[in-house]
């Protein structure tokens, strides 16, 4: 298992966590290269489908991160997002998605260190889960290959 390199899809809001990742770069804070970032205006934009889509396409992990509650650039986007996350997180855990595969965090644009710490931890936790075998679609239909 030691040579298993997980693939992780990350959804960051533009204003906070994407900014934290920018700042981590400026500060040259290294972390594992295992995730690919999809930039969203706000975690409020995160349709739960995207998380399911990532897993269905074989992502070994998903990481969602946005502004701390109260810091939303759009006043309340992350509050609405949080309720969806609560439900989706519970649903996936109940259905047997390993807790280590799906991660949520609030990281402000000033928290580069927290970004680095969470990034490392997310990769380690997903690595520990091993490859996503149970929540990936075996064969992608033609229409879905885009």
């Amino acid at each position: 298992m030691s040579d298993f390199e997980p693939k992780i899809v990350a959804f960051f809001c533009n204003w906070c966590t994407y900014g934290a990742a920018d700042l981590a770069g400026v500060s040259r804070l290294d972390y594992p290269p295992n995730f690919r970032v999809v930039r969203l205006p706000c975690t409020g934009r995160l349709n739960p489908k995207y998380i399911l889509e990532a897993f269905k396409r074989g992502a070994d992990g998903v990481w969602v991160s946005g502004c701390h509650p109260g810091d939303c650039h759009y006043i309340a986007g992350n509050y609405h997002a949080r309720r969806k996350f609560v439900l989706l997180h519970h649903m996936l855990e109940t259905l047997g998605v390993e807790p280590g595969r799906l991660h949520f965090s609030w990281i402000s644009s000033a928290e580069a260190i927290k970004f680095q710490e969470v990034a490392r931890d997310v990769v380690e936790k997903v690595r520990a889960c091993g490859p996503n075998e149970s929540f990936r679609k075996a064969e992608l239909g033609l229409a879905e290959v885009a």
Binding site: V9, V38, Y50, A54
Partner: peptide
């Protein structure tokens, strides 16, 4: 600018 189609395409390309 952040349509479902666009975001799904990004997710697909990420994997």
């Amino acid at each position: 600018g952040f349509t479902n189609a666009g975001l799904f395409a990004q997710i697909a390309a990420a994997l």
